[in-house]
Design a protein around this nucleic acid. Structure first.
Lengths: 140, 140
DNA sequence: CCGTATCCAACAGGATACTG
DNA sequence: CAGTATCCTGTTGGATACGG
């Protein structure tokens, strides 16, 4: 029986998952995963982090211009949440008019790395997914 | 001026982001990222994929038992969406009582790999995040 | 310029009851 | 067993107006 590289990778991953699953309390929430989504499973966090990674240090309205379609309210909410989790810093300059600059922390940069990899996956898999959808929709 | 490894990695990533951002149409949605979230940004998809990766081939109610708190309706909805995107397969056995088995496709396994890496990040960063939160909350 | 406050609509998703 | 169908609630996030 032939075993492909993909097979080996899956088996490898399954072992890791086994350890991961067994590590959790039987009646406790499966936290790390839930926590990922709570961090950037919303509508704007991912885009905010990507733009901050791309632009470096950015002012509020500058960022607002870069994230197409975001409202003032949601940008504030999103940035506050990221700041609270230590993913970005917020620097206020006591000028008139006021200037506020946002920037990724080291922790934020490490998350950006992961998000980037995920974006790569999405980019590379888009075609497969679209094809699968067309087929699925044509069957029903 | 000293340049750390982290600095280099960030600069590297910024270059990649630059290419990525410039590649998109100026007035077009930033798709790959949005698409990621549409794929598993909901409440249950991630957990479903992780459990399918862990268990291999699973029946409906078996999976329902593994994903704590999910309703019958949401499991159906989640699985249908994953199936539509070609991430899992659904095999119906014409028996009485009926048996339906779900399994990750190769595409699904490749996503699982990415999710696993993300879960690792979340696991490793949890402490930092919690610390940041405590500090943030104490300041306000 | 950089927010906050308030109100409101849309939608995700839970509870329950019913079927092939 | 493996789902639908229906109803209903809570939360997300958009629009708008106002404040430091």
């Amino acid at each position: 029986m032939e075993v492909t590289i993909a097979d080996n990778q899956l088996i490898d991953l399954q072992k890791k998952l086994e350890i991961f699953f067994q590590g959790k309390d039987e009646h406790h929430e499966f936290c790390p995963v839930r926590d990922i989504m709570d961090r950037f499973g919303d509508k704007w966090s991912l885009l905010a982090i990507l733009n901050l990674g791309y632009s470096g240090k950015v002012r509020f309205n500058e960022l607002k211009g870069k994230i197409e379609g975001i409202s003032q309210r949601m940008l504030t909410v999103t940035l506050r949440s990221l700041e609270r989790d230590g993913l970005i810093t917020r620097k206020i300059y006591a000028e008139v008019p006021p200037r506020v600059e946002y920037e990724l922390t080291l922790l934020g940069q490490s998350l950006l790395q992961k998000i980037w990899e995920l974006a790569q996956w999405a980019s590379g898999s888009m075609e497969d997914i679209m094809h699968a959808r067309l087929e699925y929709d044509s069957r029903s």
